[in-house]
Design a binder for these strands. Structure first.
Length: 292
DNA sequence: AATCGACCCTGCTCGC
DNA sequence: TGCGAGCAGGGTCGAT
């Protein structure tokens, strides 16, 4: 479900509600959600009980709580396709069907981890240096900085130059979290539409300038989506307070197969790239697959 | 080294 | 109304 804007919206809510609080109890069966911890729920309970939460951080679609005085200094939260983190002051006594873990904080706030598909995970991880001067959880070290971390000049240019050397579809590269993180299927398509490029265009065939424009457009869409509280197609995405996001109304192509392009009136087309749907307008977006 | 497909799950929608 | 097929916003792994 959630891409960078949705995760960032949730992170802000959690940071506000949880920072400076202490975890007093840990409940739930955990299940697949805690699969990455060798000691499962027992380890999670031992490590988190009485831990203080300093802040909630994020890179790409990974977010983590910074914990006080613990061997594993972070609790990493990845929402996968259908994960939610909700805060509550008076939750139902019984855990919901898909509620796998519940934390109770020193002030009575309850944090509920919900995930029907269980592609998400909760993982204790130590902080390490990412090679660029930032401390990140060890299990998130493999992902690149996200578009909101990259600086306008050098960082974006360097990434555009790197993409320019690759003989690979631009959409696949946008989704490659090792190249740039945080972009998922919705915002990749929206960024490509705004940049006027079809997703199967190949890196080497696009100019560094075109690639830079694509990155800027994609970042701009995500920035606007954060301001709108993210995109909600359905009840699967809500922020930490249970509110939906309002960016769906701003989507130009994603999920609009056979509908009219809002710019030229032509049909929005869906094709498959790398096993994922790519929504685009064949008039407003060019395909560039050969050297120019 | 890079890239593709399979796989991990549940739930919803669509067509017959 | 019932049922199977297909699809979904994510990531990881092994085979090529």
């Amino acid at each position: 479900m959630p891409e960078l804007p949705e995760v960032e919206t949730i992170r802000r809510g959690l940071d506000k509600h949880l920072s400076g609080k202490r975890i007093v109890s840990v409940e739930g069966r955990g299940g697949r959600l805690v699969r990455n911890n060798p000691g499962g729920m027992v380890q999670l309970r031992d490590s988190l009980t009485n831990a203080g939460i300093k802040s909630v951080e994020r890179r790409g679609k990974f977010m983590w709580m910074l914990l006080d005085g613990r061997a594993e200094s972070t609790l990493v939260i990845h929402l996968g396709m259908s994960g939610q983190v909700r805060t509550a002051t008076h939750p139902p006594a019984q855990l919901d069907r898909h509620e796998h873990v519940r934390l109770t904080l020193s002030d009575g706030t309850v944090v509920r981890f919900v995930d029907p598909r269980m592609f998400g995970h909760l993982t204790l991880s130590e902080l390490v240096e990412d090679g660029r001067g930032r401390q990140v959880p060890e299990i998130a070290r493999h992902i690149a900085p996200d578009l909101l971390e990259l600086r306008d000049g050098d960082d974006l240019l360097e990434l555009a130059q790197r993409m320019h050397t690759r003989n690979r579809s631009i959409k696949t590269m946008l989704l490659d979290q090792g190249l740039v993180s945080g972009v998922g299927n919705i915002y990749a398509d929206e960024g490509l539409f705004r940049a006027g490029i079809q997703g199967r265009s190949v890196g080497v065939s696009l100019s560094v300038k075109q690639l830079g424009s694509l990155l800027e457009n994609t970042r701009e869409v995500m920035t606007q989506a954060v301001a709108a509280g993210g995109t909600s197609f359905d009840t699967l995405y809500v922020d930490a307070d249970g509110n939906p996001g309002y960016f769906e109304r701003e989507l130009k192509v994603y999920g609009r197969e056979n509908e009219e392009c809002l710019v030229c009136g032509g049909p929005i087309v869906r094709e498959t790239i790398g096993g994922r749907s790519h929504f685009h307008c064949t008039t407003c977006q060019r395909v560039v697959v050969s050297q120019t």
